[in-house]
Design a protein around this nucleic acid. Structure first.
Lengths: 247, 247
DNA sequence: AAGCCTTTGTGAATACGCGCACAAAGTCAC
DNA sequence: GTGACTTTGTGCGCGTATTCACAAAGGCTT
């Protein structure tokens, strides 16, 4: 799961609910796919199926952008693509800096989904001098020392943090000080940022843990194992791992 | 953002709300960090701050697991770590197969957060014969032809799909047929699966698009650009890209 | 042992999101 | 031009999530 850390409330948001915003990219993807197949018009029912959502929800989401459908017919694919892109701000291009060029940073640098949506990688930065200077996906890795320069010169407004956990907060502080107001964080830490800065987090192991929870449920649930002290107070310094084996 | 595709409703869930489940891994991470620093006891206020949530929410979340706190004192870190781990099913270990060993698959294979949470990578698979046989993070990449074998022999119950979009649904069908009931999908497509199978999706470009939306808002919003035909009906086959330049 | 102080656990109020179901609006056939 | 049919846009009710605020519970000091 990913979560927003900042802006718990902000309903001067031009009225578009956060839940809707989160789904617009999904609709956009489905629409692009239809467009490639030469489909000109689509009904809410069809598009909803392609996006994996309820059709009433889809219509309500789209209604927040304005009335772009034709009753009895559906939505014009190309027009809708444009309207959603515009609403999401994808008609302008965004410069992003990727900080941390480990395995994940490399994967991100080569990810095609960025360029195709108007995101331009303005810099790859790393602290490891062994990596600095390497060529990754056609870009040369720059030393972290030049972070502020890269942000200023590239007009970077979004930073992607793919560093180890320990380095993330420090990097975050620096990019924010350099004027970045949106951060996509892959490091497994909760970043703290000043008011007005948006942070979104992607955490691979959290997703797996949520799946494990449901998987366990299907298999019978943790109820198989009784609570240690039935009902009661936390015991002293016990090895809880042993307790599992014992049950 | 990541989203659940299946199980829109399932309130025989032992009563633990989905929103709570999604936060438990975050608490667990914060607690582990405290544990490393040798902290024995933590108040809901402190832990909530570390996890980036409201303290009342934290307490209510934890109350769903039972009463593991001591009034006037707080929660015993080690005990809470154990209880959350147990609830999430992390006290047993889970075998996962990673399908698709591109940049992202490689990053996932080397991700330390898996092993430390009880997730064991039982196989790396790819369709590209040029990659099959390579050694990645101490594992040999196996051909996708042996997918069913790897799943059966490794006792895999969770599949991680990191293939190109076009291959994802096919791979998904195969892993489900082979008995996998939880799928973590990194491919930019909506997977369709039978009832009873959980799918979670992680989409890097969606996260960026959501950030772009908020970033645009801060900068003045898309209202700068007027709707094309003010108020009205979708026009014919126009180049909307031009329309932006014109505004 | 009594009282003060801290912190939990939860009732109650509020906000939010979802999906049904239907009226309004438009198309298409004849 | 008229009527039947399709599909949008949305009012409404329901369940879930979030937050506040406080009583109950326990520890600690004297």
């Amino acid at each position: 799961m990913t979560s927003r850390q900042t802006r718990p409330r902000d309903r001067a948001d031009r009225g578009i609910p956060e839940a809707t915003v989160a789904r617009l990219p999904v609709y956009l993807r489905a629409l692009s796919s239809l467009q490639e197949r030469g489909v000109a018009t689509v009904s809410s029912e069809e598009l909803a199926a392609a996006a994996g959502v309820n059709s009433a929800k889809l219509r309500k989401d789209l209604s927040h952008l304005g009335s772009y459908g034709t009753r009895g017919v559906g939505y014009e694919v190309e027009y809708l693509v444009y309207q959603i892109s515009r609403e999401l701000g994808l008609t302008q291009d965004w410069a992003v800096a990727i900080i941390g060029v480990g395995n994940l940073g490399r994967a991100l640098a080569g990810y095609g989904g960025f360029a195709s949506r108007g995101f331009r990688v303005a810099g790859l930065l790393d602290a490891d001098e062994g990596i600095v200077g390497q060529e990754i996906s056609g870009m040369t890795v720059v030393t972290i020392d030049r972070l502020e320069d890269v942000i200023a010169e590239g007009g970077v407004s979004i930073a992607v943090i793919a560093t180890p956990a320990g380095a993330a907060q420090g990097v975050c502080d620096r990019v924010v000080a350099a004027g970045v107001t949106s951060v996509l964080n892959f490091a497994p830490v909760v970043l703290s940022v000043p008011e007005g800065v948006d942070v979104r987090k992607v955490d691979l192991s959290i997703e797996l843990q949520i799946l494990a929870f449901h998987e366990q449920r299907k298999a019978g649930g943790p109820g198989d194992y009784e609570p240690l002290t039935s009902g009661g107070t936390p015991p002293g310094p016990t090895q809880y791992v042993e307790a599992v084996a014992e049950a």
